[in-house]
Design a protein around this nucleic acid. Structure first.
Lengths: 102, 102
DNA sequence: TTTATAGTTCGACAACTTTGAAAGTGTCTG
DNA sequence: CAGACACTTTCAAAGTTGTCGAACTATAAA
């Protein structure tokens, strides 16, 4: 595995290694699942992804940036809201990393 | 996603979030790949998995324990050597987390 | 313009992580 | 047994992370 690939993957795994960040990401992934398998992008408001999370706004903001920096999600503003979407490329990379087991 | 599942997954992702640990695990995965897809277990000596790693023995020992604690690998002693194997259950869990994307 | 909503930036701090030096254990080989 | 080998344990230094309070920006609604 290339050095660059290792760096990209460790960043992604680190981003998923915190319970609150993982929950945030999994909430987004769950809501996006149907659209992803159909090859479409799914947009969610950040405010809608916080159901199970018991952390303050500054912490959420920090976690979102880590997920973004790890290229697991993309974001853009829509008025008052931050819109989050899964980055399908990274999902593909992670999925292919692990073999299909008999 | 259940609380227990979240805990198990964050542990696995944390274990893969360090470059040296990821490299170690990927070395093992690469050597195990053919056996895994055929439904077999593959055994490697730890000493054989250290090709690209520039870290001391105590650090290796620590990293192996983290991978083991995360249920990504299993180990047992064989004389002087530590034998490492991929845990196929965890690979399956990780693989199914991410959807197949069109 | 005032108020409310949604998120960001900054600064701080406790907790955790990575790493290696030194010393230790168990196993094989001569 | 003596030495080498492969790993482990303990300890401590240096660095990183998760979190929050306080203050901030941007947008929308009244």
């Amino acid at each position: 595995m290339s050095n660059e690939q290792t760096k990209r993957l460790t960043k992604a795994f680190k981003a998923l290694s915190n319970p609150n960040r993982l929950q945030l990401f999994m909430n987004l992934l769950a809501e996006s699942r149907l659209d992803l398998v159909a090859g479409r992008v799914h947009d969610c408001f950040l405010s809608g992804l916080l159901r199970n999370l018991k952390i303050g706004a500054p912490t959420v903001s920090h976690h979102v940036k880590e997920l973004e920096n790890a290229e697991l999600i993309t974001t853009h503003r829509d008025g008052k809201h931050l819109v989050c979407s899964i980055n399908p490329d990274m999902i593909r990379q992670l999925k292919t990393l692990f073999p299909d087991i008999a």
